[in-house]
Design a protein around this nucleic acid. Structure first.
Length: 475
RNA sequence: GCCCCCAUCGUCUAGUGGCCCAGGACGCCGCCCUUUCAAGGCGGUAACGGGGAUUCGAACUCCCCUGGGGGCACCA
């Protein structure tokens, strides 16, 4: 095992977002590619927003995606004493100080600054309070937060693995809170302490955190570290209309894709291609192939727009590559949910085999098998499909012809083949068969017709054809 | 407003000074196949944001502009 140690450290404050999953994936791929260690750390320092459900969901999603972790989950909420001890040390060193300004006061000041066209940010008024001033605030009933004192001048710089040199003037970074007035530590502090203690060697995270890196690094060094992890800031994932991918763009949680019938391998494959590409032209890659090909050096700089259509295409590709038994197992839950006790697993497996070469989602496969598990009397041809049927010339004759053939033919897919029968009628199969199709399956799109007829069985087929025939006659 | 990051087809990308009047994939369009619809096969459409500079030579280097994105919380 190499010395490479990476961590995925989400805040458990909501659902697992596509962007989070991508960050987790890149960390995991990097660890697996290099033989390093992948750590799951839950950054739940904000006790108000964090939920245990979210902590659970993060793990459920990670497992579903196939991203296993070697250490953790480490909950920061169980390690507050370490962070607070670090904060105390920083205060003793003079790197941090008590601030008695309230959240509301600061918010008001920032708004005023903004309105006046000035730069918002903490103005440093509690930086050099005397003991007397401090006790006066305490006497007033004010609780203190602890702020880190950022340098007044100079620049903060670090070399980003994907972006190269990144720097900012310290004069533009104001003192920031590391311990809230309620006594709980803040992200920056916990992050710096844990990365140090856990000997994290590489930090891969979204580009939205690039500015916070300077602060975490300053804390880390104030805490006595003389080294620092390599940072790699990943390009953000944007929504189709622009801006960070969010709910307004449609499905953004991994679970939504899972529930819509996407394969984890396809989601992972697609996410890997967002901001990264292998050295060759391959696009459809398995998890193992991704691990082998993944290189941090090939990560893109610019933000990428999420394209649901390409994901869907990729999902179809992965569906086609799955062994039939695996695919059936994957679709079964979708079918059970839809057809319950009516589901005949043997028949269903045959339907999955037919659907495998044409479907793009698991849900679609389950849907296409619907006609097999619907009682004949309950099968209704949807209005739009029926309308198409009524517009086909000689539809009644076609149904009669199909009935005549299917009443007596050998019950094999070859025997069922209606083409010559319809041909004898003088109607092209392409034109005629949609009538039969709608009568049997209730819609005009789905599984191949003759196989569908074979699977349904003669009695049901004849029954459905007769019903359609009667409806056509207006009975 | 201030700070930071970024910039190749509609989208994801290949490309690190000549192999590029730019390659692949999704989408879209057309054709073929065909047992509906798909899937598949074949073909087509389509990009180096603009301006300078360096160079014998720039998609690739530098500068400016423009454009896009992110940050400026007692969220992470």
């Amino acid at each position: 095992m190499s010395d490479i140690r990476v961590r995925f450290s989400p805040a458990p404050t909501g659902m697992m977002h596509i962007g989070n999953a991508r960050t987790a994936l890149f960390n995991w791929l990097y660890a697996r590619h290099t033989g390093g260690t992948f750590i799951l750390r839950i950054e739940d320092t904000d006790v108000v927003r964090s939920t245990t459900e979210a902590v659970e969901q993060i793990q459920v999603v990670l497992r579903w995606l196939g991203l296993d972790w070697d250490e953790g989950p480490v909950l920061q909420s169980t390690r507050f004493d370490r962070y607070l001890e670090a904060a105390a040390r920083l205060r003793e060193q003079g790197d941090a100080y008590e601030c008695f300004c309230t959240e509301d006061e600061i918010k008001a000041r920032n708004e005023a600054a903004r309105a006046a066209g000035a730069v918002p940010g903490y103005d440093g008024r509690c930086r050099d309070l005397t003991a007397a001033e401090r006790s006066a605030f305490v006497a007033e009933g004010r609780a203190a937060s602890i702020r880190f004192r950022t340098p007044d001048d100079g620049r903060s710089e670090f070399v980003d693995v994907v972006r190269g040199e990144v720097s900012v003037a310290w004069s533009t970074v104001s003192d920031f809170v590391i311990v809230r007035s309620n006594g709980t530590p803040v992200f920056f502090l916990a992050n710096a302490v844990d990365d140090l203690e856990m000997a994290i060697s590489h930090v891969l995270r979204g580009e939205d955190l690039i500015d916070s890196t300077h602060r975490v690094l300053a804390l880390r060094h104030a805490l006595g570290a003389n080294d620092q992890p390599a940072y790699a800031h990943l390009p953000l994932i944007m929504g189709p209309g622009g801006g960070k991918l969010s709910k307004r763009h449609g499905a953004v949680s991994v679970e939504e894709y899972r529930d819509a019938g996407y394969l984890p391998a396809a989601v992972v494959n697609y996410l890997a291609l967002l901001g990264w590409a292998p050295a060759d032209d391959r696009e459809v890659l398995s998890l193992d192939e991704l691990i082998a090909a993944f290189e941090l050096e090939r990560v893109h700089h610019a933000a990428a727009t999420f394209d649901a259509q390409k994901l869907e295409w990729l999902n179809g590709e992965h569906i086609r590559r799955l062994p039939l038994s695996d695919l059936t197992a994957a679709v079964l839950p979708f079918a059970r949910e839809r057809y319950g006790a009516r589901l005949d697993v043997r028949v269903f497996e045959a339907a999955v085999a037919l659907a495998q070469e044409r479907a793009t989602t698991l849900a679609q496969i389950a849907d296409q098998a619907e006609f097999l598990f619907t009682p004949d009397a309950e099968l209704v041809v949807a209005d739009d499909s029926w309308e198409k049927v009524t517009r086909i010339e000689r539809a009644a004759e076609i149904l009669d012809c199909a009935l005549a053939h299917l009443e007596t033919c050998e019950w094999t897919v070859e025997g069922i083949d209606l083409r010559s029968a319809v041909d004898a009628l003088g109607v092209k199969a392409r034109k005629a068969l949609p009538v039969v199709y709608a009568a049997i399956e209730g819609r005009t799109a789905g599984l191949p017709l003759f196989d569908s007829i074979f699977l349904l069985g003669r009695d049901s087929v004849l029954d459905r054809l007769r019903r359609a025939r009667e409806r056509l006659a207006g009975v």
